[in-house]
């Protein structure tokens, strides 16, 4: 099993376009993500969270600065990675299992090994019985579970998630959050998790990076020191409420919330 990768970024910025209409989306920011760490990025819309994720995976080039993954400079898209977006982005012409096995087909990996891993992921993600169903035959929560299985089946060192539970109902979110945490505890992949939800950020992370916009920067780093696995009802920890309140107050200070 591949263990988590480290991500170190120094002074990275992203500017889209290069003329007068250029848009400074991000930075400069630094990142120091340890192997196997679960780090969340939280902040208002347009603060460069998604951009950070694309830069960290090499899918978009940085405008300035440098990134090292496992000590190696990042110059092209890394493949030791699984990505989950808010939309499941499953191929609607493939069954759930075939969607996951796309990783094996494109990467040319050993079929029986990956098949076995896919089956165990289906078990762990409560997807038993969904193998031969097409995406349109699955609920939103199940599609997102399939998407997570696809991101993990090739045993990457890094998992990048861009608001993966954003489109789900509250009950599904709580369950899938727990299932993700249990998987992570077993595999210890490095996770970069983007969210708008304070509950998710505090409920899942080792560390939360709070971002503000215009251009996106990291304004505060909060270490979450809570036992794992964390419960469904996070409110039962006074510590949890303390962390959540801290993020709320940062948002208020930044003008994200304007309550009277």
């Amino acid at each position: 099993m591949t263990t988590g990768a480290s991500i170190v970024a120094r002074g990275i910025t992203k500017v889209y376009g290069n003329d007068s209409s250029a848009y400074h989306a991000l930075g400069p920011i630094d990142l120091d993500i340890k192997p196997g760490e679960f780090v969340s990025l939280i902040g208002p819309s347009g603060c460069g969270k998604s951009t950070t994720l694309l830069l960290a995976s090499g899918l978009e080039p940085v405008t300035q600065g440098s990134i090292e993954v496992d000590g190696k400079p990042l110059t092209k898209p890394i493949t030791e990675v699984g990505i989950v977006f808010q939309d499941h982005l499953l191929l609607d012409f493939r069954t759930a299992m075939k969607n996951v096995m796309l990783q094996q087909e494109i990467r040319g990996l050993d079929k029986s090994v990956i098949q076995a891993r896919a089956e165990s992921l289906f078990e762990r993600l409560n997807l038993k019985g969904a193998e031969n169903r097409y995406p349109w035959q699955l609920s939103g929560g199940m599609r997102q579970r399939v998407s997570i299985a696809r991101a993990l089946v090739h045993d990457p060192s890094m998992l990048l998630m861009d608001e993966p539970f954003g489109a789900l109902d509250a009950i599904s979110r709580t369950q899938i959050r727990h299932d993700l945490e249990m998987l992570w505890l077993d595999t210890r992949k490095t996770v970069l998790f983007i969210t708008h939800s304070i509950d998710e950020a505090v409920g899942l992370s080792d560390r939360v990076l709070v971002m503000s916009k215009g251009p996106g920067t990291i304004v505060e780093e909060i270490k979450i020191d809570l036992p794992r696995p964390r419960p469904a009802h996070l409110g039962e920890y006074p510590e949890f409420t303390k962390y959540a309140n801290r993020i709320y107050s940062i948002f208020e200070k930044l003008g994200v919330y304007k309550f009277k």
């Binding site: 899918l59 990675v81 977006f85 939309d87 494109i106 090739h154």
Partner: peptide, 18 residues
């Protein structure tokens, strides 16, 4: 095709033909 799907296939190391 959703352009973000390109991100996913590129992270798989897919060639243009694949």
């Amino acid at each position: 095709t959703d352009p973000r799907l390109r991100y996913i296939t590129r992270s798989m190391g897919a060639s243009a033909f694949q």
